[in-house]
């Protein structure tokens, strides 16, 4: 079943400078799609569209058959359900961390989901263990190293238990040990039925993980 369908999306920030031109993409549930492309080829724009943060000038975005546009996301309940279903890891984790402790950062999403305190605590502890960041539990995210921030930001996204994970350069800023662990973790997530959309320049992601690789090209200006 197609979980995500982008049909003939056209997007431009300024007139005559297209970023995406007649771009179409279908992503099946439980699959892994790797997005590649040079800087300025539209990866971040595509991710913004997938997360309902930007909308193409023309074309259609369907998520589970529902058209995602500004009108749909005006409905608070629909927007929240959509954002719960799609977890977005920003390329720069600095722009994701705003709480006073790592625990609160990870608990931010689950606390809003109507879970009991015990369930929230269980999720946060599980995430801390999963990402091997238990020792950072009470630390202020702002003062962590780049790699640690990335782990905390990813843990905060995972704590929402999204169906789709949109990961913008998830390996950037990590040491080799963490990269190896992350590759294994992503394979586990895929095996658990999660849909993965990853922007990366790494070739090793293709091995045993990627079902489809999309190469974005920088469009010519008019």
């Amino acid at each position: 079943m197609d979980l995500i369908e982008l049909k003939d999306i056209n997007f431009e920030y300024e007139k005559g400078e297209p970023v995406l031109t007649d771009f179409s993409l279908t992503i099946e549930e439980g699959s892994c799609v790797v997005i590649r492309g040079d800087n300025g080829s539209g990866k971040s724009t595509l991710f913004r569209i997938l997360n309902g943060l930007s909308f193409g000038g023309s074309g259609e975005y369907l998520f589970k058959g529902t058209k995602i546009d500004a009108e749909y996301l005006k409905d608070n309940s629909g927007a929240k359900r959509f954002h719960k279903a799609i977890g977005y890891l920003f390329q720069n984790p600095d722009t994701m961390l705003f709480n006073s402790s790592v625990y609160d950062e990870i608990a931010f999403g689950p606390r809003q989901m109507g879970l009991t305190d015990e369930e929230v605590d269980e999720r946060v502890i599980d995430c801390l263990k999963l990402f091997d960041i238990e020792s950072l539990k009470d630390k202020v995210p702002y003062h962590l190293s780049g790699g640690q921030k990335k782990m905390v930001a990813f843990a905060a996204v995972i704590a929402l238990d999204p169906e789709v994970l949109v990961l913008d350069e998830p390996f950037a800023g990590l040491d080799q040990k963490k990269i190896d662990w992350l590759l294994g973790f992503l394979k586990e997530l895929k095996a658990a039925g999660k849909t993965l959309i990853i922007a990366t320049h790494r070739d090793d992601v293709n091995e045993g993980l990627a079902d489809k690789t999309i190469e974005l090209k920088i469009p010519a200006s008019e």
Binding site: F90, T95, Q112, G114, L160
Partner: peptide, 15 residues
């Protein structure tokens, strides 16, 4: 960007 991140993770009732 930070507020975008907040809104993306605000999936329910924020007390």
């Amino acid at each position: 960007d930070l507020l975008t991140a907040v809104s993306l993770r605000s999936v329910g009732k924020n007390n």
